[in-house]
Design a protein around this nucleic acid. Sequence first.
DNA 1: ATGATGACATCTT
DNA 2: AAAGATGCCATCA
Length: 113
Amino acid sequence: MQDARAFREAVLALVGMIPVGHVVTYGQIARVAGYPRRPRQVGMVLKGLPEDTTLPWHRVVNAQGLVPSRGRFWGALLQIQRLRDEGLEVAEDGTLDLERYQWRGEFTPWPQL
DNA sequence: ATGATGACATCTT
DNA sequence: AAAGATGCCATCA
């Protein structure tokens, strides 16, 4: 590990690069950030985000396409709501079609945003 | 300081 | 295919 603070910064940066209408998994973020074995810490970072953050944290889901881990956490409903607002089809359970929505492209800063 | 917990993933029964 | 075990490490009690 290099630095917890740097890790957090990297994660936040990547999350902000997720295109609208797409989602990524925790493992994906961790891997691209350069920390292949720390998907969990990614979640820790997001948990620490302020409520008024502009970061699209709702576009981060687990590897199964299930929104929050145990089905319902503090704001699963909110996350699902937001995803739907962006035009994604999310089931009541919070499950969604990863094959269809997972972002597979490069994580680069928005070309025009 | 030690031990338990967790917005997860992956491997092994 | 489904359930259990392991890895990981920052945060909390």
